[in-house]
Amino acid sequence: MSKLKVERLGGIGGFGGNMSHLRSVGEVDLAKISDEDKKIIEALFELHKNSGESLNRDNFRYRITRKTAAGTESIEAEEDKVPTVIKQCVKDEIV
């Protein structure tokens, strides 16, 4: 529950694609982030199902995974919807 797993996806390079050599992953410790960031992340999990498609193209998306009592839950959110703490936790690598 205390940590979020984050993966940066897409971009013009296609990070995280199944044949891609570009990967970008990281973690966020919920105990170390502000209440505001927590609220925003909570809202992303609440809302992801009915968020419409934007006109962003080649924008990074972030897959955010959390563990709850009910199990593991993942959402994907566009870069301009996630707080900086999520964007900055990942490290781009060639794998």
Partner: peptide, 9 residues
Amino acid sequence: YNNAFWNGD
């Protein structure tokens, strides 16, 4: 920043 994008505008 390892990217370029179009944001609709």
